[in-house]
Amino acid sequence: MTEARANNIINVVNLHKSYTDAHPVLHSISFHLTEGECLGVVGESGCGKSTLARCLLTLTGWQSGEIYFDGLRLSGMGNRELREARSRMSAVFQNPASALNPRLPILDSLMEPLDERKGFVPSFLAGERPARRLEVAEALLATVGLSADALFKHPHELSGGEKQRIMIARAISTEPAFIVLDEPTASLDVTTQSVILNLLKDLQETLSLSYLFISHDLAAVHFMSDRIMVMRSGHILDEFSKSRIFDEQRHHYTKLLLEVFSG
């Protein structure tokens, strides 16, 4: 299932993770993600999708197996190396309300990653030549179609869609090589979902981003992903490219999901 290619941004080999000994969450997971690719992950609640994402982002540890990020083994990294690796990853989570500190104005939340990398200006803003922190923040918001007024508001003053756009702007601000999109449209209405998905797709094409797109929504996964991975109870049941989604050889659970998707 796993190919060891030179242009793999993520390579996962036999990953095993459990919170308690009795209940493993991930069983010998192996897959890869190539540069500029979007890998969709679908599966029922509790199947281990978000735990997998947290492992990839090194936000939680794992018992055995290896994760390679851009050819570097993540386990056993020192603090400085880990910090360096993390600075090239990013994430957009399901609930934007929980992803923004309610006590901080949007400006501070948005600029947090860039504040940690003093003086860094994303290359996609280079044409606009933003010099000051505020100008960079304004340009970032413009990238996701928001006005500068949002910078001085607190999260509770913004809609779910606006908050999620801010999270996307924050996620791309450091020009990461890899972004985890953990159900980024789950808490949004259908119209906003479509706007956000189109925005993510456009940004991926413009900035050559690699996505791990986690969702319950097969339609969204189908729209976003180049390849799709089906998970259940911590196992990868199926993995296929989008063009081969309706092949006869699919796992019966995948067929079940597709039946629901097709209505």
């Binding site: 947290r54 993390r86 990013s90 994430a91 929980s98 500190n101 947090e112 450091t174």
Partner: peptide, 13 residues
Amino acid sequence: QKEYIALATLSGV
């Protein structure tokens, strides 16, 4: 447990 703490960790804070 909140995600903004995870994001801050990821940002290198």
